[in-house]
Amino acid sequence: MSGYTFKSYLEKSQLPHMWCPGCGDGIILRAYTEALAELCLAPQEVVTVTGIGCWGKADDYLGTHAFHGTHGRALAFATGIKLGNPDLTVVALMGDGDAVTIGGNHFIHAARRNINLTAIVTNNYNYGMTGGQYSATTPLEGKTTTSPNGTAEPGFDLCFLAEAAGANFVARTTCYHAVALKNMIKEAISHQGFSLVEVVSSCPTYFGRFNVHPSPVKMLNWLKDKAVPVQKYREMSAAEQAEHFAVSTLVNKNRPDFYTTYKRINRPDQSAKGEE
């Protein structure tokens, strides 16, 4: 045993946190810190990169290295950090706004490059920090403060997007499934290459209140009912699938990561074509 507990990674002086009662972010932060403890990683070995938004505040409660950047750019900063010092464990915490709305371009390219880092995306289907506006994952006809009658845009499926872009490891769960979530984060951090954990999360204050229920308990139950293991999901009819989402590990590949490939191709003694 390393002697680390989840508390080893929290900055106690900053707690209690600013998130609303029943917000999924606290559950995910707990799972993340539990995972770090079980992986026996020293806080000095880990860089937590955050963006902007409710989940982007997570670094304020953490005692690992932290890089709190700008909205949507977490993966671009994280890419530089990882390549600047490949020995570091780099984890980017992003919301659905950060990861696939304003930062969608960085998301697909970090997956395509297969940068050896982990993205933990909390998807609560809206922008909580700014007051519950719709994001690129808000489902079609989802009600938000900027789509009072329902949004006319369909939402992204983050995991499909990451898979199509080439991510090595893609998994999804919800903040209801606290133990599975912790294990998934552990597996993702241990996996070489770009790994994504999508955590479908609850925002009782906005998305819940407008679309499901303002009760944190009812929101977690809603997530529990929506989530079905991927095998079962594949056997569902299209109509049933539309009402659910698949959870568990969705992609598990072993494509060499960017740094390994770059170093293989670009040896210091190598001369470029046409140059002797």
Partner: peptide
């Protein structure tokens, strides 16, 4: 331990 792990506020 689920109450502990699911408590958003530690």
């Amino acid at each position: 331990r689920l109450c502990d792990l699911r408590c958003p506020d530690f």
